[in-house]
Design a protein around this nucleic acid. Structure first.
Lengths: 337, 337
DNA sequence: CTGTTAGCGCCTTCAT
DNA sequence: ATGAAGGCGCTAACAG
């Protein structure tokens, strides 16, 4: 196997490497005849341009990177399942823009600060996608400061301008809570995410607003934050249910939280939809197949991914800077509420 | 923002770029003092070596690519969910080897033949991971012929040597079928994958062997192949159940097939575990949360990924060529059987 | 239309 | 221990 470079093609055809380059890139300035020959030989040699050499000239490498923390100890297991789906959909959207997705599960627990600059500056990716956004997120600050091209899936409390796409979790949970109230429930438990995440606060706010809106009291004994796995869920839900006046409904900030809760409640002999109501958030593929099927707030994942990539690509083209999108999720009513 | 190259560091420190390179790469031949200075300045400048320039010299880019077909029309939706999990676990295993995972959802339906050579030869990835293997897989043939470094998750009928990792689906389905038979079932339906996939045949063989082993007849009316979505499942399962002597148990070649089946059966008023038995294959996160929880054959995904990456890395190091691993899955008995 | 030249950022001889 | 020079594969700028 020879080298398979434009030089080899040039030699075979009897032209200069520059002409080969021009022909291969559809740049004018090559006679049709030579262009034809060149393309034929390239085809015959099974030639593929070296993307590495190309991007060394300052061109793009046609790759977007998604850097995430894979094994964050307090990472909601719930989000983990959501992000598994998110990743594949993101990759598909990338593909429609001719980009590949580079997955980098960060190794440092500190939100992958080490890797962020490295991947971008090392030229391995043209832009960055960030998720799991915290209210004050050092990664976002870093990227803004260094003017690196990125897009965030989620808002922060940071005032500086940057681009993001987010789902209106406040509205979503507000809607879910109202739905449950309209079913006649008055004592409503809330199962929240770890409050360092922006979306955790956002979703809690929706719960809060719905209760206020209906003039229901905010009872701290019904509210819990930061449950991230089934074991913790067991403790918390047991406690919630063993109160003198336990909640008759639960609004969970994620499908997995809801599923854990249903599982614990089942051990108390309680069946969702019959003995209590519950709603989730995400609409994982799983949600339609639980028993009973889980009512939930569906994240518009496809839209989210489309917007993320579209904005990031425009940023790479220098066409836009600090724009954002807030997408509205959708209440899906199933048997659990 | 300046260029941030070794040249800039060299100028600041007052040495040659070569010395900077040596210092940065821990190559001997730099005085400790200069080395210290160089590293200090690099740190201060927030310098990251350009991976692109590096790999132009023939070094690795530290990336493995997973090329897959995202929107294959006949792609079992079942596998889709499995591969979503597979991807994230694969990425994590890559990370432990210092590699990133490049996701390329192929755009051509033809098994991504176009992209395979391109990605590898373009230097964007050092090696390739292939899944969704078919019995005669043109991608595998191509990669073997061109001596490109790859590893397959799955066997083929191809005789030429190449490396793969696979799960013993024959054994798995054999075990599941025996389990169901041992529960007293005699009429056992089989729900198979599209037979162009090696694993589809493999799993069917397990069913076949179990029936033979117990001297049960092979009834074609109980056997179906190639169901890939819920709509098809409805038709097929309806037909299976409306026979004079319908199966009293089902062995499905994937969890999703099993779940679809349970869903259709429920509409016939039949509850798994009570009115009939059913087993799946994969052990998706979903499986533990269906109603009733699904008995299934658990794919050792973590082991699979570990072996895939380990073998591929050894291949890249020139240490091994056509080795393979066959992993044994595990029967997980839950409420559905 | 075509070829030559220079250089992207880095590493690796080869001298010194 | 250090620096100068060449080249990885490709493309852009400049000549002809």
């Amino acid at each position: 196997m020879s080298k398979r470079t434009i030089i080899e093609i040039a030699e075979r055809v009897g032209v200069s490497p520059a002409s080969v380059s021009r022909a291969l890139n559809n740049v004018p300035g090559v006679s049709p005849e030579k262009r034809r020959q060149i393309l034929a030989v390239a085809e015959e040699l099974n030639y593929h341009p070296n993307a590495i050499a190309r991007s060394l000239q300052g061109r793009r490498i046609n790759t977007l990177a998604y850097i995430y923390v894979a094994d964050m100890p307090d990472r909601p297991a719930t989000d983990l399942f959501f992000f598994r789906d998110f990743i594949t959909i993101l990759a598909e959207r990338c593909a429609t823009y001719g980009m590949d997705l580079l997955l980098h599960p960060a190794t440092d627990g500190d939100g992958s600060m080490n890797d962020i600059g490295r991947i971008l500056r090392s030229g391995r990716a043209d832009g960055l996608i960030l998720a799991d956004i915290r209210r004050v997120d050092p990664r976002v600050l870093y990227l803004i400061e260094h003017q690196l091209p990125f897009i965030a899936f989620g808002r922060t409390d940071i005032r500086k301008p940057y681009s993001y796409v987010d789902v209106d979790g406040e509205w979503g949970i507000y809607t879910a809570t109202c739905h449950v109230i309209s079913r006649g429930h008055q004592r409503i438990g809330f199962l929240g995410l770890p409050i360092e995440y922006t979306c955790a606060v956002d979703r809690y706010d929706g719960y809060h607003r719905a209760l206020r809106h209906y003039g229901l009291p905010i009872n701290p004994a019904y509210i819990t934050h930061g449950v991230t796995n089934e074991t913790q869920a067991r403790v918390v839900v047991d406690r919630l249910l063993s109160q003198p006046e336990p909640p008759t409904a639960f609004v969970a900030a994620s499908d997995m939280l809801a599923i854990y809760t249903m599982s614990v409640a089942a051990q108390h002999g309680m069946l969702a939809g019959r003995d209590y109501a519950i709603t989730g958030f995400d609409d994982l593929p799983l949600a339609a197949h639980t028993n009973p099927p889980l009512s939930t707030i569906r994240q518009p994942v496809h839209q989210v991914c489309e917007e993320l990539i579209a904005r990031l690509m425009r940023r790479l083209d220098g066409e836009e800077h600090a724009q954002h999108t807030l997408l509205r999720p959708e209440l899906v009513i199933r048997g659990s509420s």
